[in-house]
């Protein structure tokens, strides 16, 4: 009896060691590599936006495509903090109430609005000339999180028999916009 039991235990341990552990390890490394690629692509996209001062539909599509080449689905959040320079009026309707002063206000634009500006039409030809402009001194940042469960997360879930959160590849990068172009 005890012999059978030990055999079963031995079998379980060896299955774990021979199959599951190498697979899990391989997939975890794959996640590491993916993270590096995503970081690379994100810095490239953000840096080019910061240097150019605008986003074109093509830039965004290329960024998306290079991310999806890793085999995961990502949620890309963009954030544009614009420092708008507004004149000071005590009563905005009354032109004479101008205080001869200005204030710097922050206006934040998020992903949805930026994408609306980039892709207003349905066809690509309509969108080709669209650009989202940023001003020098603004802040632009991008956060990329994977939406699907990566293979390594799935294997770990199976092993731990617990629900794990999907977000494993989280990259956030941003900075000041250096230049503006037309």
């Amino acid at each position: 009896m005890s012999d059978t039991l030990s055999k079963i235990v031995a079998l379980v341990i060896s299955v774990f060691l021979l199959f599951i552990f190498p697979v899990e390890n391989l997939l975890a490394r794959q996640d590491d590599i993916t993270r590096i690629i995503v970081l690379n692509e994100t810095t490239e996209f953000v840096d080019s936006v910061r240097n150019l001062g605008y986003i074109t539909p093509l830039m965004y599509i290329q960024f998306r495509e290079s991310l999806s080449a890793t085999g995961n689905v990502y949620d890309i959040t963009m954030e544009h903090i614009h420092f708008s320079i507004d004149p000071v009026y005590t009563d905005p309707v009354d032109m004479t109430s101008f205080q001869h002063d200005y204030k710097i206000n922050r206006r934040i634009t998020y992903t949805e609005e930026i994408l609306e500006r980039l892709f207003p039409g349905d066809s690509m030809a309509e969108n080709n000339n669209c650009r989202y402009h940023l001003s020098a001194g603004d802040i632009f940042r991008v956060k990329v999180v994977n939406l699907n469960k990566t293979p390594s997360a799935k294997v770990q879930q199976m092993l731990l028999m617990a629900e794990l959160p999907a977000g494993r590849i989280i990259v956030s990068y941003g900075g000041m916009v250096r230049d503006e172009n037309n």
Binding site: S84, I85, P87, D101
Partner: peptide
């Protein structure tokens, strides 16, 4: 521009 009272 803002000092002349113009809005963005």
């Amino acid at each position: 521009c803002a000092l002349t009272g113009a809005f963005p």
